[in-house]
């Protein structure tokens, strides 16, 4: 018998799959490393690898030290952290809502956070810390509102998405009220937060996001083990001993906090969460815990888009515009694909 399934064959297949996942993850990491070095080396002036290495090692190199430590490194770190946050959030949302189109952008969660940030900047002139707290509060509030209004125990998506679009429209109206009537001097800062941009980020804006990532990623990773069980369907997951409700709440809460923190620092970088989820699953395969891979993919995406936005054209474009231009056509493609398949 040729096709007999033996336990050895299953183990062998499993082993092969794990090896290929490790290889792919390593590949993503290498890409991330290459992109990061590009971000440090390349710019108005191009530094050599040894110069960058010396600066990072703590030595003072005339000219290079300031550019790298004050400008390029914070920018790179912000891109890295925000990209990871958005990427992980995208994957988690997509899995929990069982719909590749569900993500914090479309559901209005990012809009909620940026609305709070804009009000903080234009009305209350608050410090960075208050902005971050407000963004997180608004993000969580939006999620609660979303699920409260959709009025369903299961997170069925059609209604959820429409309600998300409604919330988004509402937040946008509030945002445009404040940007039209706000103080002209505060406007550039507010617009920066609306478009998703890495300009003018300094190192002292980052520790909170950094700490949150360090704290929350292990949580997401741990519960992410169960995501693959959730992928099989809620009943199956429950029968395999997963506490579905608890898993969902913890995963949602952590990802919303991550998204809101990242939004407070860089503004909503459009479509990163939307792109990272499905594409990571495509690269890594549906099985397995893809949370880390999605984070790395998101970071790659943001760094690459920022490089393109800064240097590919005569004008410098904020990173959100570039990801928006990539993401919107992809959303449309996904839609066509989904409605062709019929079932969705």
């Amino acid at each position: 018998m040729k096709n007999e399934i033996t336990i050895e064959k299953i183990f062998a297949a499993r082993h092969r799959r794990q090896t290929s996942r490790r290889v792919k993850l390593g590949f993503l990491l290498v890409i991330l490393l290459i992109l990061s070095s590009c971000a440090l080396l390349y710019g108005q002036t191009i530094y050599s690898v040894s110069e960058v290495w010396q600066v990072l090692g703590g030595k003072f190199v005339a000219g290079a030290s300031f550019t790298i430590l004050e400008l390029r490194l914070p920018r790179l770190l912000a891109a890295l952290l925000a990209g990871m946050s958005f990427g992980i959030a995208g994957l988690v949302f997509q899995t929990l809502l069982r719909n590749p189109l569900a993500n914090p952008d479309i559901l209005g969660i990012s809009s909620g956070s940026s609305c709070a940030v804009v009000i903080c900047i234009l009305v209350f002139h608050t410090s960075q810390t208050v902005r971050i707290i407000a963004a997180v509060g608004a993000g969580i509030g939006t999620v609660l509102l979303l699920f409260g209004l959709s009025n369903q125990r299961s997170l069925a998506t059609t209604r959820l998405v429409i309600i998300g679009l409604g919330l988004q429209a509402f937040y946008n109206a509030v945002i445009s009220y404040f940007t039209v009537n706000g103080d002209q001097r505060d406007l550039p800062e507010a617009l920066r937060c609306l478009n998703g941009s890495l300009d003018g980020i300094s190192l002292n804006q980052l520790p909170l996001l950094d700490g949150a990532l360090l704290l929350l990623v292990p949580v997401i990773f741990y519960f992410g083990q169960r995501i693959q069980l959730l992928n099989l369907g809620e009943e199956v997951a429950r029968s395999l001993g997963v506490n579905v409700g608890q898993t969902k709440i913890i995963l949602l809460a952590t990802t919303v906090i991550l998204t809101a923190l990242a939004t407070a620092v860089t503004g909503p970088i459009a479509f990163v969460s939307f792109l990272a989820g499905p594409l990571t699953n495509k690269i890594m395969g549906q099985t397995g815990n893809n949370a880390l891979a999605a984070g790395i993919f998101g970071a790659c995406l943001v760094i690459a888009a920022d490089l393109v936005g800064q240097y590919a054209f005569v004008y410098r474009f904020p990173v959100g515009v570039i990801t928006g231009l990539i993401g919107a056509p992809y959303l449309i493609l996904q839609l066509i694909h989904l409605s062709k398949r019929g079932a969705g």
């Binding site: 189109l101 479309i106 998405v161 429409i162 679009l165 459009a270 479509f271 928006g324 231009l325 993401g327 919107a328 056509p329 959303l331 449309i332 839609l335």
Partner: peptide
């Protein structure tokens, strides 16, 4: 229809 509108609008 709505998402197609949203996608086009975001673009």
């Amino acid at each position: 229809l709505l998402l197609a509108g949203t996608g086009v609008s975001m673009m």
